[in-house]
Design a protein around this nucleic acid. Sequence first.
DNA 1: CGTTGGTATGTTATGTTATAACATGTAATG
DNA 2: CATTACATGTTATAACATAACATACCAACG
Lengths: 167, 167
Amino acid sequence: MKKKKKNENSSKIFEYHDHGACFGDAITQIEDYFIQKKLQLTPLRRKVFEILIEDHKPLGAYDILDKLGEAGFSSSPPIAYRVLGFLIEHGFVHKVQGLNAFIACSNPKHSHFPTFVICRKCEKVAEVSEEKSGLNLPSPRITNFKIEKTTIELTGICSTCENAEIR
Amino acid sequence: MKKKKKNENSSKIFEYHDHGACFGDAITQIEDYFIQKKLQLTPLRRKVFEILIEDHKPLGAYDILDKLGEAGFSSSPPIAYRVLGFLIEHGFVHKVQGLNAFIACSNPKHSHFPTFVICRKCEKVAEVSEEKSGLNLPSPRITNFKIEKTTIELTGICSTCENAEIR
DNA sequence: CGTTGGTATGTTATGTTATAACATGTAATG
DNA sequence: CATTACATGTTATAACATAACATACCAACG
Ligand SMILES: [Zn+2]
Ligand SMILES: [Zn+2]
Ligand SMILES: [Zn+2]
Ligand SMILES: [Zn+2]
């Protein structure tokens, strides 16, 4: 049996990801999707998505508005909320309820009921796919109920922050 | 094999419950808990809990404030938020994030990661215990993360409302 | 006693998040 | 060119939440 490097298979949730690639892929994906669905990826929509994918962390609507303002767009609240709503509808953005914030989807290709794992200390947020979370959604139905949307957020502390905590 | 009545085992999530009993039990439970923990179940705290358990549905903080006002208590926002925070800490109230609303816990005895099932049409909300939801939380840990709190909300449509929808 | 510390509540002001309602611009369709 | 659909702009306000400080009460201590 081959020796494994330490932590090689730890599948850390907050581990490094190649964000250069992530960013490019995301842009390509949204472009393709919009063409395929005959939707308009307008400068405003593109900009909002870029803002969110740029540092790939949750941003409040008003943070986004500020950045829109800096970039020369209008920055009144409905602008952000409308575009965010639209991007959410199409699965490219999620709302993190526990933070009143919005985050670019990590994998829009998956039709998913995403789980968000949120460290209360470093405030990192990871989107985990249904399979990976160990969290099994019931059948698409619980008895007598059709699930259309889920909010699943697990808040706690990541190992890095936990180790740093003084007890 | 014995014949079952129709729907006998349907375990409907929004089914009737004996709310007279539910109300009384809840009051008893909170009284016992507060005595045991040497906490003060003050008139204000009791009233807030009663308001929530009374119709057993989610109420916004400002709805609660109005009812406090009617009952002769102060009704400035911090009053409600403080008491709600306290009751939440002790597991007698939950916040329903998707509705910005608060609801009395259906079973404070269970140390639980509750799941809320929310009908978007009739706006009924059911609290489902971990076991019953068919939703399995991961081990207390996902890799390298310690879960302290969960927000699990399933929004959709209940069978009653679905049947009523015109297609 | 009178002080001190803990806990609960009251009050004012403000901060933060989100939407309603209506106006304007622009492009495709017939 | 009128009609429609859609995207964006603008103003105002609604809805949700907290900061900061003031007051009240009570129990324990010296
Ligand atoms: Zn990334
Ligand atoms: Zn996603
Ligand atoms: Zn009840
Ligand atoms: Zn509960």
